[in-house]
Simulated assay, not measured.
Amino acid sequence: MNKMLTAAVMATAGFSVASEVAATEWNVSVWGKRRAFTEHVERLAELVSEKTNGEFTLNISYGGLSKNKENLDGISIGAFEMAQFCAGYHRDKNPTITVLELPFLGVNTLEEEVAVANAVYAHPAVQADLARWNAKLLMTSPMPQYNLVGTGDPRDSLAAFKDMRVRATGGIGKAFAAVGAVPTSVTATEAYNAMESGVVDTVAFAQHAHLAFGTINRADWWTANLNPGTVNCPVVVNTDAYDMLSDSEREALDSSVSESIDHYLANYGELLAKWDDVLVEKGVTKVEISEDQLAEFRTVAADPIREQWIADMSAQGIPAQELYDLVMDTLAAERK
């Protein structure tokens, strides 16, 4: 006899229905539309449902529960049980993980991105930082290095970046500011309109976002090798909701993270393989920045911004140098 039928019979007979027969449903707040950036969340929902025979489900909402910059606040008050957010949207709320958004960290692959994020997420100071929001870090959303799409003449030198209005958040925004550009932190969902209306000349995104949010459709050119950094976007769960799961539900959730990330990496790899075809199809010119200009960009942006970040975070009592060293040591270990 299935659980629903058993419950109905018990209720008819005058018995109270035990709480364990009730299915567990979690609401998950993401934004935009389903895309490469959310495929691990989608796969996680599939796996959790499969492993619990549908007794634990994740209801994924694309913008219906919260604005993307308010997802961490929603988690903190239990408005929903799981959410995705990006550190650069609110640096003061999650200062420890902004180490992963420093420019020119040298992360070259999505696998390296996963490794450094997992190492940082596991650090006690980072877990304590997110615990202030009643949030438990579940998994990262690994993204390639950002690059620009822009309108008008290609910008292929630091001199051309001067006064360039660019949609860029976090450390990437600071890197562009260091070479005289004017960054603005409009959200991903606002980027197309900002580009269309002329609020920005250029937009810094990973490839999937240029597709998903339509900025590639406004573009005349794309920088193939600027690679100034990326943003870090964790998926977190409300700690109280996590603690209320049964042992089997918690096991179903935790054991599905690795496979969900593997699915994300495979899916993103297919997108990257097709990227050059997308550029040709949409008539977008690929711009290569010279190595001497890249070296100058790193000199101007990477070292000063990193040192300032370490000083600022250390003044707040955050083990900043330790977190930065953790990223570098993890990268070295991953490459062995």
Rank of each mutant, 00 (worst) to 15 (best):
P319H: 05
M313K: 13
D254P: 04
A206W: 00
A315V: 06
I261D: 02
G269L: 06
V203T: 09
L253K: 04
S258R: 14
D240E: 15
A224N: 06
R306P: 08
A320P: 01
I318H: 03
G214N: 08
D276T: 12
L271D: 04
N225A: 10
F213R: 06
A266R: 14
V284H: 06
F213H: 09
A320W: 01
I310D: 00
F205T: 00
V280E: 12
H263F: 15
D240G: 15
Q316Y: 07
W309A: 07
T223W: 00
Q293N: 14
D254T: 08
D240K: 15
F205H: 07
C233K: 00
G229I: 00
W222F: 12
S246I: 08
P228T: 04
Y242H: 09
D243E: 14
D247M: 12
N267P: 01
A302K: 10
T230N: 05
A204N: 02
E249V: 12
Y324S: 08
A273E: 08
L265C: 08
A212Y: 00
A194C: 13
I305Q: 07
A295Q: 10
S246E: 07
N238D: 13
M313L: 12
R218A: 13
I305V: 10
D312K: 15
I310R: 01
G317T: 12
V287Y: 00
W221Q: 08
Q207K: 05
P304F: 02
N217A: 14
W221K: 06
N193S: 12
T230E: 01
V287W: 00
A194Q: 11
D201S: 13
E288Q: 12
Q207N: 10
S258P: 10
H263N: 14
P234L: 08
W222A: 03
E307Y: 08
I289T: 02
Q308N: 14
G283F: 10
E322T: 15
L253F: 09
N193L: 11
S256V: 02
E281R: 11
I310G: 02
A266D: 14
V231M: 09
P228W: 05
W275M: 07
T330L: 06
V287R: 02
L326R: 08
L323A: 09
A206F: 02
M244F: 08
T215K: 06
L253R: 04
G269A: 10
W309C: 03
D254A: 11
L331G: 13
L323C: 10
V237T: 09
M244G: 07
K282F: 03
S248L: 03
V235A: 03
F213N: 06
Q316D: 05
V199R: 14
V236Y: 00
V203L: 10
N225S: 11
L326T: 08
W275S: 05
V287F: 00
N232Q: 10
S248F: 07
L226Y: 02
